[in-house]
Design a protein around this nucleic acid. Sequence first.
DNA 1: TATTGACCTCAAGTAGACATGAGGTTTTAG
DNA 2: CTAAAACCTCATGTCTACTTGAGGTCAATA
Lengths: 147, 147
Amino acid sequence: MDNTLSVGDVARRSGVAVSTLHYYEEKGLIQSLRTQGKQRRYHRSILRRVAIIRIAKQAGISLRIIKSHLEKFPTREVSPSDWQQMSSEWRAMLNERILSLTQLRDKLDSCIGCGCLSLRDCPLRNPEDKLGEEGPGARILEEERQS
Amino acid sequence: MDNTLSVGDVARRSGVAVSTLHYYEEKGLIQSLRTQGKQRRYHRSILRRVAIIRIAKQAGISLRIIKSHLEKFPTREVSPSDWQQMSSEWRAMLNERILSLTQLRDKLDSCIGCGCLSLRDCPLRNPEDKLGEEGPGARILEEERQS
DNA sequence: TATTGACCTCAAGTAGACATGAGGTTTTAG
DNA sequence: CTAAAACCTCATGTCTACTTGAGGTCAATA
C-alpha cells in the first residue's frame, strides 16, 4: 500500500481489462513504474488518463490519434503553453466531430416520411419523376469529402 | 444510361472504393439490382445511403449499428411510423455521442495547467499531498461505466 | 515458509472493415 | 466486331484493438 496501483487495481477501478492496459502501455498511451520483480505500478493519475482514453475511444477516436494528443500530456511536468496547444487541438477535433454528428442528426430530422435524405429528389415525394437532373441541393452530403 | 448507376459510378460519386461497396452489400447495408451479366446496378438513392454510412462511420458508429438503423430505411416503401421510430433511435444515439464528446471537450477545458483532469487531486495543484482519500468529486469519470 | 492468487512475457488468435490479386466475364467505344 | 475498360467471385492479406493461453515469476497471507 505505498500509494501506487497495480494493474489489477487499475483494471478494477477503470473498468478496462488487464490485457488492455498492457496493450495501451505497449502502444505508448500509458506508462508504468516497475517493482524489482518487474510488476507494474501506477500513479493514481493513470485513472484519469485511462478514463480519457475510454471516452475518446467511445467517441470513435482512434488510439493513434488519442496517443498523439496524450503525448503532450506528460505525467509530471507540463508547460502552460504545451497545455494550451494540446487543449486547442483536442477542442478543434472534438468540435469537428460534434458538428458532423449534429449535422447528421439534423439531416435525418429534416426528412419527414421517406427513406431519402433530401426532399428534393425523393421518389416518394416526387411522384412525377423529376429525377436524374442532378440539380443543386442534392449533393451536400455527397461532396463532403476530406483528406 | 438507363438511369441506374454502376459500381464504378457510385464509387466515383460517393468517394468510397468499389471493394467497399461490395463489402457493404455483402454485409447487407446496401442492395443492388443485377444485369443479365450479373453486374450491379444501383438506384440513385444509393448515393444518400452511402453518404449516411460514411458520415455515421466517421462519427465512430459501427457498421453493425448503422445497418440495424438503415434496415428500417427500405429503398421503396416506408411507413411514416417506421420512419418515426428509426429517426428517434438515431437521434437518441447521436445525442448520446454528441453529449459524450461535449463532456470530454469540456472536461479538457476545465483543467488549466496540469496533466490531470481534476483540480481536486492533481499533484501539481495539490502540493500538500492530500491524495489517497478518495473523496467525492474525483471519480466522475471512473465510474462512468456502461453495458 | 509455503502456497495461492496476481503478475510477467511472448505468441497466437479474433473481429471489424476493408484492400488486393487471381482468373475469368461483360460492356462499351471505336 | 473486337479490344480495352469495367465487372464478377472468391480467397487471402492488412490494420486496429484487443483477448487468450502457455509457461513461468512475484508477493502477500495463513
